[in-house]
């Protein structure tokens, strides 16, 4: 694998994750638990698409094959998407949505703080902009994790159920492969080992405050680094890509 191929793959990993997560959150638009929170989650979704958009643009440039950001988002298949498994999981109830977002926000918070130091100027600049958005996201979702976990008996149970269900998708966020090895050597990528303990202690701190417990000895699912997904992704893409795929000559 060349450095260029590695960088392209790395960008897709980041952009796909942001886009798929945004797509999931946007499903809530107009259906949120109350009006103010509907707007808040929608803001979050918008930030994520913005991040995906910038990174896809850069990916297209790195690839150098005259594809643009929309080609990358709308004309790649299930076996090419590199988003994390946690991002594509179904929304479930608001507990699951918030917890899924909280785990991703916590990851992004430490990840982008490191990516700012990347020797790749474009990634560093994107990280610089994103970190402000993510800092707010994390504040928002961690306050909700706490509220729902330490709210009523029902909300507590729902949060614990959500945690039991999605915890198994958190492990592979830190998985590294050849792509990382190549790019870490170049000073471009973030060594995910270096942020794992921060992610764990932050997660634990908030989950403790929320009075919910991490399942013991949970098996961690994996696969997204090789574009092996859960069955959810196919449906997300079928919906998201339907129009550009149906009318491939059309411009939007």
């Amino acid at each position: 694998m060349t450095k260029q191929e590695a960088l392209f793959n790395y960008c897709l990993r980041l952009a796909d994750t942001s886009l798929i997560l945004a797509q999931r959150n946007a499903e809530w638009c107009g259906h949120g638990p109350f009006l103010e929170e509907d707007l808040a989650l929608t803001n979050l979704s918008l930030d994520l698409i913005g991040q995906a958009n910038s990174i896809y643009q850069y990916a297209a440039q790195v690839e150098g094959k005259a594809r643009n950001e929309d080609d990358l988002a709308y004309h790649r298949s299930e076996r090419e998407f590199l988003n994390t498994l946690i991002a594509e999981q179904s929304n479930g109830d608001y507990a699951k949505t918030i917890l899924r977002q909280f785990f991703c926000d916590t990851f992004d918070f430490y990840f982008y703080a490191e990516l700012v130091k990347s020797k790749d100027e474009t990634l560093s600049a994107i990280a610089e902009k994103s970190i402000k958005e993510i800092t707010y996201h994390l504040r928002h979702t961690s306050s909700w994790v706490e509220r729902l976990g330490d709210g009523t008996e029902e909300s507590h149970t729902r949060m614990q159920d959500a945690l039991n269900e999605i915890w198994r998708f958190t492990g592979e966020m830190f998985e590294m492969n050849e792509v990382d090895t190549i790019l870490i050597k170049e000073g471009i990528a973030v060594d995910l080992n270096s942020i794992k303990s921060k992610w764990e202690s932050k997660s634990k701190e908030i989950l403790d405050r929320a009075t919910i417990k991490i399942p013991a000895n949970a098996f961690m699912q994996r696969g997204s680094r090789e574009a092996k997904h859960t069955e959810h992704l196919g449906f997300i893409l079928a919906e998201m890509q339907s129009l550009p795929r149906a009318l491939p000559d059309a411009k939007w």
Partner: peptide, 20 residues
């Protein structure tokens, strides 16, 4: 105006509703 259930939520909602 807006609705919120606690002070931190009110502040965050204000940010999301009125400073977009």
């Amino acid at each position: 105006n807006l609705h919120a259930f606690d002070a931190e939520m009110a502040l965050q909602n204000a940010r999301d509703v009125y400073t977009r």
